[in-house]
Every structure is written in C-alpha cells, then in structure tokens.
C-alpha cells in the first residue's frame, strides 16, 4: 500500500513523536508514505479568518503538488493523500470539497495557482486521515497479527477530538458523535478501553493562545472525564489535542487546584509498543506528563477487574430491561 503523505507543520517538530511512531508502525505494516515534496502549511484555523482566497490558494498549492506527484509516480491509480493531523485533514478535504461545490471559487484559486505554474482539479485526490487508513485499509486483523506485546492492564480513554469525523466534508469513516474505530483499535492492541463520553469534545484548539481561561476549562473537562472513568492515559490522533492536553495539564492543575497526571500519547505510539518497538523508537519521552509510570502497568499486574460502569443499574427483579444495542465486537 502506497499513499501520498502530508505531515503538516506540527509533525515536523512539536509532534515529532507522532511522525516517528507512525513511520515505524507503517514500516511494520508494509505501508509506504511518500511525502509531498515541498508542501506548505495548510492554514490551520487562522488563515481563513483573515483572508478567504489566500487561505484557499494556500491549501490548494498542497493539493496541486500532491496530485502532480501522484500522477508522475503511480499513473492511473486514484491518488490518496494521507494527513495524520486532524486540522490538516479537515482543511485539505474542505478545500477540495468547496472547490468542487463552487466553480467560481475553483476558477479564482486556479488563477492564483497559475502564478506559480500550478493547477488543481477538485476531486482528483482522495484525502484521508491516518486513522482511517490504518483501521480500514490495513485492517484490525493485520494489526492484530503484528501485536506481540499486548497492552494488557492498560486503561485507555480514546480521544478523537473534533475534526477527524466532523463535519465530514468528504467521506465519513466513523460516527461523527460517537466514533468507535479508535476504541476498537486499542482493544486489538490488548488494552482496556474506558467509556469516554467526551471523546469528540473540543480540546480548546487555539484558545490556549487567545483566551487561556476558556481553553483551560475545556481541557479540565476532558481530564476530569478521563479521570472519572479511571483511565491510565488518553490516546489521541491529533497534534493539537496532544499539545493542549499534555503541555497545559500543569496549568489546569494550577488553575483549578487539581492534580491530574494523565499522559497523552498518539495512537501510533501505542501501536508501536504493542508491536514490540522500544519506547524510544516511538518517541516516548517527548511528553510533558511522563508516560512511563502508566506504561509500567503493561502486563505488570493481573488485569484489574473493570469497575462496574456507573450508568448501568444493578440487575434486580424489578429492573426494567435496557434498550437493545447493536452487538459490539469484543476482540
């Protein structure tokens, strides 16, 4: 399997642990990522706030480069471009969609691209998030076959954040309100997944820079919810979510008098560990909240009994039956 790869600015340095671990995991799974040559920033959530056409042109340059590169390498195959960062994924797929929906916008964008000798035809790339590719193209079975150090005893809160499933500018690979693909992936790795109702709630995004109080409250809610469900760590798939929950955790503790010490890792880091890679090889050690104490739990003790979920009432003769739900697979 070969994909175009758009790392995005964060993965160069701030979230280099994500890049390192995803490359290591990809190698084990036989997935090839060909980085788009000379890509630029996708615009994040800032560019569009100030200038409309420049924002679309900025993101479109990446699409044009990726499509050209795909054409010159693998010919007739539909080109697939993978973004590991949720914001990049959203921006690229949104621009692709809007260029298709609005011919006027596409004409303006292509007029701008022409100044750099580029052109992009909307819809010529299939833009995907890394998690989508991992769980749907590689598949849980292939992943399970690579697991040699299962994450037994680890209680994980799977955190999807906003932009991976919302609002679905192109195809959707999971439920936008209550996704489960990361839950399932973590179970395949041998970890225990805790219920995490806030799994698609916002981490605060750029509010850490604009209104610290707003951001810290959003981060606090997520940490509290994970702690309430006794998670050993939160697993994420977005560099912004990782940064906010990790780097600002101490600030939350100071602001609210709490004492959270919940490590925040990328899902690819845990995949690597489950595949038997060393912590260093998957970038462990870059996090503010040290993940080692939590990781030490792996296989250390007998699996703790899951505390009875608070929401399900105890069975009694008088109890009313619960609504039937579609069966959840338990690997």
């Amino acid at each position: 399997m070969r994909y175009g790869y758009y790392p995005g600015c964060s993965l160069e340095r701030n979230a280099s642990a994500y890049h390192t671990s995803l490359m290591a995991v990809a190698e084990r799974l036989g997935v090839e990522f060909a980085e788009v040559d000379d890509w630029n920033c996708c615009g994040a959530t800032e560019f569009i706030a100030v200038n409309r056409l420049r924002a679309y042109a900025l993101a479109s340059r990446n699409l044009a480069l990726a499509a050209d590169q795909a054409r010159s390498t693998n010919g007739a195959d539909p080109a697939q471009l993978v973004a590991p960062c949720s914001a990049c994924f959203l921006n690229l797929s949104k621009v692709d969609r809007y260029l298709e929906d609005s011919p006027a916008l596409a004409a303006d964008v292509n007029a701008a691209l022409a100044a750099g000798g580029l052109h992009y035809e909307a819809g010529s790339l299939r833009i995907r998030h890394l998690l989508d590719v991992i769980v749907n193209d590689v598949g849980y079975e292939q992943i399970a076959a690579r697991v040699n150090s299962p994450l037994r005893g680890m209680r994980i809160a799977p955190y999807y954040g906003c932009l991976i499933v919302r609002p679905g500018f192109r195809e959707r690979f999971d439920d936008p309100e209550y996704p489960t693909s990361l839950d399932k992936l973590m179970r395949v790795l041998g970890a225990q997944v805790v219920d995490f109702p806030l799994k698609t709630h916002c981490c605060g995004g750029h509010m850490t820079q604009i209104s610290r109080d707003v951001a810290l409250e959003l981060i606090r809610r997520l940490l509290k919810n994970a702690a309430d469900y006794q998670a050993d760590m939160i697993v994420t798939l977005c560099p912004m979510c990782q940064l906010n929950l990790d780097a600002f955790q101490e600030s939350v503790n100071e602001q609210f008098g709490t004492n959270y010490r919940i490590p925040i890792l990328f899902f690819t880091q845990l995949m690597g560990l489950a595949f038997g890679l060393s912590p260093a090889a998957v970038g462990i050690g870059k996090e503010f909240i040290d993940a080692r104490p939590a990781l030490a739990k792996i296989g250390a003790a007998a699996e703790p009994a899951a505390p009875a979920p608070k929401r399900k009432p105890r069975r009694s003769d008088q109890g009313l039956p619960l609504p039937q739900m579609p069966e959840e697979e338990q690997p």
Binding site: R54, L58, A112
Partner: peptide, 14 residues
C-alpha cells in the same frame, strides 16, 4: 517564491 507569487495573485484577485 512560488508560494509568494500564488498568494500575491490571490490577493490581487480578491
């Protein structure tokens, strides 16, 4: 330079 040219053209169109 290519990026700057693209953004400059976008600014002009806008």
């Amino acid at each position: 330079d290519q990026l700057k040219a693209i953004l400059e053209r976008a600014r002009e169109i806008d």
